Computed example of a mutant assay.
Amino acid sequence: MIKHKSLQHVFVDSFPSSLEPGKLYVSVEYGSVAHGCCCGCGEEIVTPLTPTDWHIVYDGETITLHPSVGNWTLACRSHYIIRKGEVIEAPAWSDQQVAAERRRDGRAKAAYFGTTQAASPSIASTAVTPERDAPQYLLSGNIGWKARIRRFWTKIFR
């Protein structure tokens, strides 16, 4: 069950130590989006913005996060879509569907990054840290936020 039906986006350099419910924090600096789980369980959700993970669409007023957010490693197992700031509850996935998606994700990462490993590590065992996981083209140089956004989108859509 979804408790938060909409999320107000906030562009930040880095995430606050405590995420306010109902807010979608976007850090272009670290190529990530964070929010409190929309079911209201209190868990913090971080989605990395990479060519093989999530991406956002900012239309000047709202944020869409794609693909859906599936919290399979959490007790709530919530699944939802964030479209134009609105939260849309999505159907639950079976363990078999989750496993198939993880295999697909591992293959996509291996193909994109040119590695031989086709298996993706479990999200639960992987801590996302900006220093390690932010795309280098977002961290390089002392440039303004507009230039970082332009560089980010150029890398994503070329």
Rank of each mutant, 00 (worst) to 15 (best):
V128N: 11
R150V: 10
D95N: 03
G85K: 01
A111M: 14
L65D: 00
Y30M: 00
Q117E: 08
C41P: 12
Q96R: 04
G144D: 14
V69A: 02
Q97H: 02
L19F: 08
T47M: 09
K84M: 00
K84S: 03
I81T: 06
P91M: 05
K155E: 15
V33C: 03
Y30I: 05
P91T: 08
W153L: 14
F113E: 08
S78C: 03
R150I: 15
I63V: 15
E131D: 15
R132D: 12
A127Q: 13
I149H: 02
Q96L: 07
F152H: 14
P91W: 02
T126E: 04
G22N: 06
A124N: 09
L138K: 12
V26E: 08
G42W: 10
V98P: 05
S17R: 11
A99E: 15
A108H: 04
L65P: 04
P51K: 14
T52F: 15
I2G: 02
C38S: 13
T115H: 08
V26Q: 05
S27K: 03
T126W: 10
S94R: 04
F157Q: 06
A119R: 11
R151M: 07
T47E: 09
G70Y: 15
V87C: 01
L49D: 03
A100D: 13
T73G: 06
A147R: 03
S18F: 05
R104Y: 05
T47D: 07
L19V: 02
F11D: 05
Q8L: 10
H9S: 09
C37L: 10
T115R: 07
K146E: 10
S140W: 07
Y25K: 09
Q117S: 00
A75W: 13
D13R: 08
P130H: 00
K5N: 12
C38H: 10
L65A: 05
P16C: 08
K155R: 12
V98Y: 07
T73I: 10
L139T: 14
S78P: 01
A110P: 07
I143D: 01
C39S: 07
Y137N: 08
P67Y: 06
G42H: 02
V28M: 13
S68V: 05
F11H: 02
I81V: 10
S14G: 02
S27T: 09
D95I: 03
A90I: 00
V87I: 02
R151W: 01
D133G: 11
I149S: 11
A127C: 12
T52E: 07
A110M: 01
C37A: 15
S18D: 08
I88Y: 12
T62Y: 00
T50R: 15
A110Q: 08
T154D: 04
G141L: 04
S14Q: 14
P16L: 15
V33A: 07
E29Q: 12
P48C: 06
F152I: 07
P48H: 02
A75F: 13
I45E: 07
S125G: 02
C38K: 11
R77T: 14
G106C: 06
R104F: 05
G36N: 12
L49Q: 08
S17Q: 10
P130V: 04
Y30K: 06
L7V: 02
H55F: 13
Y58G: 00
G31I: 11
C76S: 08
T115P: 06
G42C: 03
I2M: 09
T52K: 11
A118F: 10
W72F: 13
E20G: 01
Y30S: 15
G85I: 01
S18L: 09
